[in-house]
């Protein structure tokens, strides 16, 4: 049974449909990457999962319990880091971490101290004086010091420097090794690629793709560079070839995963002298889903 199960999740604000039938699940011991640009519905989904917003349709369960009616029970085993960490200006970071621990129920004092050192946080300062990154550290220390089974992290690294991002990634890897699950919302694709087992891409409130990175790559385009013995001027005409550019002695282009066979057959007729291929990055995948929005806009302009 999945730790987190969302089916047909719909949420509207007035006339605006923020979520329109979102489906995904997070399995035990898995890091699930939840990616999409700002305003796609990531935070809305997360706030529904935390029982802060009431869904209009669909089901959403965590540990098999309903996220709305059993919220308090579920939160016992959840650690949440909001995207925009707002803290009480007149409490110190240390006070907030301890308060959060008390509200959670489980306190792991040793782990708390370790994390404070790792994240290099001055806990005796008032939250008023903290930068965005430092406020995020407070929330991260509180989350990772807890004994949660599921970590819900909403763009947790947006204010952290690369060193601290690294510490964060180690923390995620550690909880994963301990068999815990993570829902990581992000738009930093390298981070998602490094940490996540499976990925869901959300766009305008609709989950457009979910699967492992390998599965998603299968759907996407491969980057190819070829040099041919005989000149081939009509590569651009082959179905499935995109973004063709002349590069030095050869050609650079992208191929749709399912058209690769046909393209290779065509190319081999011209005698392949050199062939380089690069796996599609998540960024390519992302651009493929969002790129056509800009493409359409350009077409409209011309």
């Amino acid at each position: 049974m999945p730790i987190l199960d969302v089916k047909g999740l719909t949420k509207t604000f007035g006339k605006f449909k923020a979520l329109d039938g979102v489906d995904f699940e997070v399995k035990k011991g898995e890091v699930f990457g939840f990616i999409g640009p700002n305003g796609a519905g990531k935070s809305t989904t997360i706030r529904v999962l935390l029982g802060l917003l009431k869904r209009d349709a669909g089901t959403a369960t965590i540990f098999g319990q309903d996220v709305w009616s059993d919220a308090v029970e579920i939160h016992r085993k959840i650690a949440y880091v909001p995207g925009d960490v707002n803290l009480w200006p007149n409490l110190t970071g240390g006070e907030v971490i301890d308060l959060f621990a008390s509200l959670q129920g489980e306190v792991n004092g040793k782990r708390r101290e370790e994390l404070i050192v790792k994240f290099d946080l001055d806990t005796s300062k008032k939250c008023r004086t903290y930068s965005k990154g430092n406020r995020q550290k407070v929330a991260l220390v509180a989350a990772f010091a807890s004994d949660a089974e599921l970590f819900i992290l909403d763009e947790p690294t947006s204010g952290l420097d690369p060193l601290m991002e690294r510490v964060f990634q180690q923390c995620v890897e550690e909880v994963k090794e301990a068999g815990k699950s993570v829902l990581l919302s992000s738009h930093i694709l390298s981070e998602v690629e490094r940490l996540c087992d499976r990925v869901g891409i959300i766009r305008s409130g609709v989950m457009v793709e979910t699967g492992t990175l390998a599965e998603l790559r299968h759907l996407t385009r491969l980057n190819l560079y070829v040099e041919l013995n005989s000149p081939a001027t009509d590569i651009g005409q082959i179905p499935g070839v995109h973004e063709l550019v002349k590069a030095g002695d050869g050609w650079k282009f992208q191929v749709d995963g399912d058209k690769l066979d046909a393209v290779m057959t065509y190319l081999s007729k011209h005698g392949i002298r050199r062939l380089e291929s690069a796996p599609p990055t998540l960024e390519d995948l992302f651009m493929q889903h969002y790129g056509d929005v800009t493409g359409r806009a350009e077409a409209g302009d011309s």
């Binding site: 409490l91 110190t92 001055d122 005796s124 300062k125």
Partner: peptide, 23 residues
């Protein structure tokens, strides 16, 4: 200069009600 505050919450600051009173 502001003097450093508590690095730990007091034993009192443990519940939502305590937070309200503290704030």
């Amino acid at each position: 200069h502001q003097k450093p505050g508590r690095a730990h919450a007091s034993a009192f600051l443990k519940t939502p009600l305590a937070l309200v009173l503290r704030l």
